[in-house]
Amino acid sequence: MSGANHVDIRTLSHPETATLEGKNKFLGFWFFLGGETVLFGTLFATFIALRNRVATGPSSQELFSLPLTFLSTIILLVSSLTSVFAVLAMKEYKIRQMQLWFWLTVVLGLAFLGLEITEFKEYVHEGLGYTTSAFSSSFYTLVGTHGCHVLFGVLWISALMIQSYKKGITTVTAPKYYVSALYWHFIDVVWVFIFTIVYLLGILGG
């Protein structure tokens, strides 16, 4: 909004919601995450209904390894923390710090994706293809949808960070940084549910 341009941005404690556009983005993104929650909820429900339908393929008890997924979980949780630091830095207009923390988030996201790809390769090797059973289809679809979200988050935050060297922290860019971090937290929360419902329940066989 034109009005905000006349004020020194550094006096604003919440640059992400200083303008009407920023407020709209903020609220709209929360609603979007509400829709995403229902989307993942439906995928979870489908997975829960089909998780023991292994047909002739391997079951989750035979496949999952706790150490590997525990490592993935730690990596993703830490990446959520780094994105919090990035947003805190943004609110203090420390652009270098913000960039550092966001880049760290991206690196952790990539590490997570690398682990996930290794894991999927291993499962395919052990005979769990996408078309093996209802369990395999629902497993790969749920975890894969999450993986695609992580990939999109990595691309998105990277694109914002490359631009940030030129654009800095303004009332236009601050809402973008903020909602990208919000998105990152969301995929982290989804992973916590995947870890519990897919992996822990899968290993314990509940």
């Binding site: 429900a45 489908t46 209904a49 089909l50 339908r53 292994v54 047909a55 996408y130 078309t131 093996t132 059973s133 209802a134 369990f135 395999s136 289809s137 629902s138 679809t141």
Partner: peptide, 15 residues
């Protein structure tokens, strides 16, 4: 060729 609704491989059409 996933099996969500393919009963032969454990799918469930009621979902």
């Amino acid at each position: 060729h996933a099996n969500f609704f393919n009963t032969a491989k454990g799918g469930n059409a009621i979902i």
